[in-house]
Design a protein around this nucleic acid. Structure first.
Length: 473
DNA sequence: ATGTCC
């Protein structure tokens, strides 16, 4: 069935005001008016504009009617922030820009906030800052999780002498190139398969059903931005009971990516719903929440968890393909989400903990904190410190904005840094150059009360979205 | 982060 596409121009022509109601009406027309003609749809939307009160109970058009209904009703939906925010500790405050801190102060003033924390790699984001941790009572904030739901790390440790990475560099490079796909709309040439695609949520949940085909095409891909797949040298200096592999040097395969278009669509859909439902002051608008006692909140929770499983599947597909090619089974895998929300306990109270660019660091929980394309990443073990709501940073954090990095960093400068570190770069944007990131070791020192380092990962062969250095895009 | 949603 062909979808009916009404344009903003047409809506404004019949008298619709500028603002979010336009895109809302477009989406509703697309969803519900596929059996109507354009003229019929516009007629109905005009009726809603003229008499919004008559459509407040209409199951399809109520959201539009609510937006169009003047005065009194908006007040009903206005929610104010608390004067005094809940407390939150800041780790590595000297590394954190003002914008991120002030976003955290705003988040702490939400009436649903319980406790927060700000990680040493924090920077400004939409809604909650990247590196922000926020616990709520029983509410979920779509932009407290972020657009890339389930963005995560996955490390496979192989019992292969890492000297092989230099000696057979081209062989390992080819494994990455042949088994990964980067880029914004990237799809595999031959679609992958995974049990997650049979998850009943994909069939029972309206929004997820509409995203199933696209998700399947993108399964096993890595996306763009700071996402990567790389081989490196894993060094375990001391035996650790939790990590459970003997000290020594290993070959590691490390990946960083999320839930691709699937998670982005879920985040966009539910944050819009939340913003319609709860109008917050301008500085907090993107922090609109859904209660888990509401239908929409439950739906988001199901969708978020599916996106998390899907992101995990994308990593596993890559790792399994490469492991099979190497003819090896990993002796250990370490993995964690760092954009997600969890049901956890804080001071014995049930809370929803949002980590947007933060690594779970409960007692003895293993995780990965990556550095940059040349700097070490670390295998960490959480200390279960409630001062950070059981969290740690998810990386070194950017020192330079993407724009500034593109303007100031040269190809030759990057080439020299790669050469010095002995890293073979198979592709990346200049904005991912190591100089764009903070010093990971300084960031780790700022959180030594939050995690123990149990191993390190030194990148050797790195693939990100973009052309290889010295080649044309 | 996402083939960027007015």
């Amino acid at each position: 069935m062909k979808k009916l596409k009404i344009t903003g121009k047409e809506l404004r022509a019949i008298g619709y005001p500028e603002g979010p109601v336009v895109s809302l009406a477009i989406n509703i027309a697309k969803k519900f008016f596929k059996h109507n003609t354009r003229e019929q749809a516009l007629k109905i939307l005009k009726d809603v504009l003229d008499k919004p009160q008559a459509f407040l109970e209409d199951e399809r058009l109520a959201p539009v009617a609510l937006q169009l209904k003047p005065a009194a009703k908006t007040e009903l939906y206005e929610t104010s922030l608390n004067n005094q925010g809940v407390p939150f500790n800041i780790f590595g405050a000297e590394f954190i820009e003002e914008g991120a801190t002030s976003q955290m102060y705003t988040a702490a003033k939400l009436p649903v906030a319980v406790i927060g924390a700000l990680m040493p790699d924090a920077h400004h984001g939409y809604g909650l800052p990247i590196g922000g941790v926020l616990a709520t009572a029983n509410e979920v904030i779509p932009y407290g999780v972020g657009v890339d739901i389930g963005c995560r790390m996955c490390l496979s440790v192989f019992n292969i002498d890492p000297k092989a990475l230099k000696e057979k560099e081209n062989y390992f490079a080819r494994e990455i190139i042949e088994n990964t796909k980067f880029g914004s709309g990237a799809q595999l040439d031959k679609a992958a398969d995974h049990a997650v695609m049979e998850n009943k949520a994909f069939y029972e949940h309206g929004l997820l059903r509409s995203l199933h085909t696209k998700a399947w095409k993108q399964l096993g891909t890595s996306g763009s931005g700071n996402h990567f797949v790389e081989f490196g040298e894993v060094i375990i200096e001391e035996d650790d009971e939790i990590l459970g592999i003997p000290k020594g040097k290993y070959t590691g395969l490390l990946s960083h990516s999320g839930s691709r278009g699937l998670g982005a669509s879920i985040a966009g859909h539910y944050t819009k719903l939340a913003m319609q439902k709860r109008r917050l002051p301008a500085e907090a608008r993107n922090l609109a929440w859904l209660s888990l006692d509401e239908q929409e909140g439950q739906e988001y929770w199901i969708a978020m968890n599916l996106a998390g499983e899907y992101a995990s599947a994308c990593h596993h597909i890559i790792h399994e393909k490469i492991a099979r090619q190497l003819g090896e089974r990993p002796v250990k895998m370490v993995e964690n989400h760092h954009n997600f929300a969890w049901k956890e306990k804080f001071e014995n109270r049930d809370v929803i903990v949002h980590r947007k660019g933060a690594t779970p660091a409960g007692k003895d929980v293993l995780g990965i904190i990556p550095g940059s394309m040349t700097a070490n990443g670390y295998i960490v073990k959480g200390k279960g410190n409630e001062a950070s709501v059981n969290s740690a940073s998810h990386g070194a954090g950017r020192k330079m904005s993407r724009t500034k990095a593109m303007e100031t960093i040269s190809h030759s400068e990057l080439k020299e840094a790669l050469h010095k570190s002995g890293v073979k770069l198979l592709g990346a944007g200049l904005d991912e150059a190591p100089f764009a990131y903070k010093d990971i070791d300084a960031v780790m020192r700022a959180q030594n009360n939050l995690v123990d380092i149990v191993g390190s990962f030194k990148p050797k062969i790195v693939k990100m979205d973009g052309a290889a250095p010295g080649t044309k895009a």
